[in-house]
């Protein structure tokens, strides 16, 4: 229990140690802790910002997809419409063409029928004349009775015409 110079040395050590501890232990350690704290705060803020921007991009992307989908639907609608139009057009054209063909065929048939009728008429006229000539060989002069024969031929063609019209 002797109080002596030891006490003063201890005071000296204390002063030196506290100074050293403040300068080389406390300040750097607290500095590192503070730096970490601000670093973490910064990173959290950054993460929050990133999250928000990601959210915005997601919304943009969704909007783009929706726009594209609408556009695609519009295109399909227009294409269907155009397709329908094309089909209608084709149908109309085909119908017209068919009608044209039918008309042409009918005209041709009529022409052929008329031609055949004319030929038949001429032949019938000649046969009739030839028949009559054989029956009336002696007294009938073809020149004096030509007018009579033409009237007969005209009468024959009238029923033939009615028959062709019916077909």
């Amino acid at each position: 229990m002797n109080i002596n110079l030891t006490l003063l040395f201890q005071v000296l050590f204390f002063a030196v140690f506290v100074w050293f501890s403040k300068k080389f232990v406390w300040t750097p350690v607290i500095g590192a802790l503070d730096a970490r704290k601000t670093g973490i705060a910064d990173k959290l803020a950054l993460a929050e910002k990133d999250r928000q921007s990601a959210e915005a991009s997601r919304r943009d992307a969704q909007k783009a997809v929706e726009d594209a989908r609408g556009e695609a639907a519009e295109i399909i609608r227009r294409a269907e419409q155009r397709g329908g139009e094309l089909v209608d057009e084709a149908k109309t054209r085909a119908r017209a063409e068919g009608e044209r063909l039918v008309t042409a065929a009918r005209g041709e048939i009529e022409t052929e029928a008329n031609k055949a009728r004319e030929a038949l008429r001429a032949e019938v006229g000649e046969l009739a004349v030839a028949g009559a000539r054989q029956i009336l060989q002696r007294e009938i002069d073809p020149k004096a009775h030509a007018e009579l024969l033409a009237q007969l031929a005209a009468k024959l063609s009238a029923p033939a015409q009615a028959e062709s019209r019916r077909s």
Partner: peptide
Amino acid sequence: FLWVFSRAARKAVAG
């Protein structure tokens, strides 16, 4: 004490 602590403090990193 000071040697150990100051050694750690000198190499202290925020990471």
